[in-house]
């Protein structure tokens, strides 16, 4: 019976597609180090939901410290953090206390104890080619309306760059605020991309619009 359940879970994980950008993020209710939380509890805030392979592992420890250090900057931008792994709440509690004792860093965000892999499966965090029991390093940016806006997937072996997460949040928020796009390696203060014109008349007008224009489809402006 237990084998049947395990096989059924494996089939579900293998067949479950990843969530889609621009669609509502999968709804969940989960046990966390801050009590039972639902996705809906975060409405009105941006949410960075991220998974790590396992508690008490070195790369994950460096990531948790980095995310904790990033938390004040995220808070200024109205962003909450929430971690996840397939470990128990007791393991999470012991690990965050261990991090505080050994590294002097307090983990301010909740961590989901996803022992039944429910949230991990909903968000496509399990990559059977890497591990059948540990979540990969997945990160989801969910906007205040609950829409999935960005996803980053890293393998078990590679710790994430939290400054890139901050840059991504800044870019998404700039897009929402100004109706623009952001070029490669953009950072706050750099010029942004004006969306290309959709008609020949607009293209003609664009050349006279006063933007920094290379050609009708390529204009930048300061925001």
């Amino acid at each position: 019976m237990a084998t049947d359940v395990a096989m059924a879970t494996e089939v579900l994980i293998a067949n479950h597609s990843l969530p889609r950008l621009g669609q509502p993020a999968p709804v969940f209710e989960a046990e966390t180090t801050h009590g039972m939380l639902r996705l809906d509890d975060f409405r009105g805030s941006w949410l960075v939901l991220f998974s790590h392979p396992a508690d008490f592992t070195p790369v994950c420890t460096t990531e948790f410290i980095a995310f904790a250090e990033l938390a004040p900057e995220l808070k200024k931008r109205g962003v909450e953090l929430c971690g996840l792994s397939i470990d128990s709440t007791f393991s999470h509690i012991a690990w965050v206390r261990n991090i505080e004792r050994n590294f002097g860093v307090k983990i301010p965000f909740p961590v989901i104890a996803d022992l039944n892999k429910e949230v991990a499966t909903l968000y496509g965090m399990l990559m059977p080619g890497e591990s059948k029991t540990a979540t990969s390093r997945c990160l989801f940016v969910i906007d205040p309306n609950g829409i999935l806006r960005a996803m980053i997937y890293y393998p078990l072996s590679t710790g994430r760059n939290t400054q890139e997460v901050l840059r991504l949040i800044d870019a998404l928020q700039a897009t929402d605020k100004h109706g623009i796009a952001t070029p490669a390696n953009w950072k706050p203060g750099d010029k942004v991309i004006v969306p290309p014109p959709a008609t020949t008349d607009d293209a003609e007008a664009r050349m006279q619009a006063g933007y920094e224009t290379k050609d009708w489809y390529f204009s930048k402006k300061a925001v």
Binding site: L37, R38, D41, G44
Partner: peptide, 12 residues
């Protein structure tokens, strides 16, 4: 406390 924790606490 963050708003998400207040919402969670209200259920409890």
């Amino acid at each position: 406390l963050p708003l998400y924790r207040i919402r969670s606490a209200m259920r409890e």
